[in-house]
Simulated assay, not measured.
Amino acid sequence: MIKIREATKGDVDILYNMIMGIAKFHDHEEFVITDKQKMLSAGFNENPKFGALIAEFNDEVAGYLSYTWNYSIWNGSEYMNLDDLFVWEEYRKHKVGLNLMQRAKEICSDKAINMIRWEVETDNIKAIDFYNRLGVTMKEKGLFRWDF
Rank of each mutant, 00 (worst) to 15 (best):
M1T: 11
M1W: 03
K3F: 01
K3C: 09
K3Y: 01
R5E: 11
E6T: 09
E6I: 04
A7S: 12
T8C: 09
K9A: 10
K9F: 12
G10Q: 11
G10I: 07
D11N: 09
D11E: 04
V12F: 06
I14G: 01
L15C: 03
L15E: 06
Y16P: 01
Y16E: 00
N17Y: 06
M18R: 05
M18C: 07
I19W: 12
M20L: 15
M20Y: 14
G21E: 06
G21M: 09
A23Q: 08
K24P: 04
K24M: 08
H26L: 04
D27K: 15
E30V: 13
F31E: 15
F31H: 13
V32Q: 05
I33Q: 10
I33M: 08
Q37H: 10
Q37I: 12
M39P: 07
L40Y: 14
A42P: 00
A42K: 12
A42R: 13
G43L: 05
N45I: 03
E46N: 12
N47M: 06
P48H: 03
P48D: 09
K49W: 02
A52V: 10
L53K: 03
L53S: 08
L53P: 02
I54F: 07
I54Y: 07
A55D: 08
A55Q: 06
E56K: 10
D59A: 11
E60C: 06
G63Q: 06
G63K: 09
G63Y: 04
L65R: 05
L65W: 09
T68N: 10
T68K: 08
W69R: 07
Y71R: 00
S72E: 02
S72F: 02
W74D: 05
S77R: 11
Y79R: 01
M80V: 13
M80N: 07
N81I: 00
D83V: 02
D84N: 14
D84H: 01
L85V: 15
V87A: 06
W88V: 12
E89D: 15
E89K: 14
E90H: 10
E90C: 02
E90T: 14
E90G: 01
Y91M: 05
R92D: 05
K93D: 15
H94D: 08
H94N: 12
K95M: 04
K95S: 12
G97H: 03
G97P: 06
L98P: 01
L98A: 08
L100K: 01
M101R: 01
R103Y: 09
K105W: 00
I107V: 13
S109F: 00
D110K: 15
D110N: 15
K111S: 12
A112G: 00
I113R: 05
N114M: 00
N114T: 07
W118M: 08
W118N: 03
E119C: 04
V120F: 02
V120I: 12
T122E: 14
D123T: 14
N124M: 08
I125T: 15
I125F: 13
I125M: 10
A127F: 05
A127S: 14
I128Q: 14
I128S: 02
D129Q: 11
D129C: 01
F130E: 02
Y131K: 04
Y131D: 07
Y131V: 06
Y131F: 13
N132I: 10
R133Q: 13
G135H: 03
V136R: 00
V136K: 01
K139A: 01
K139M: 06
E140R: 04
L143I: 15
R145G: 12
W146P: 01
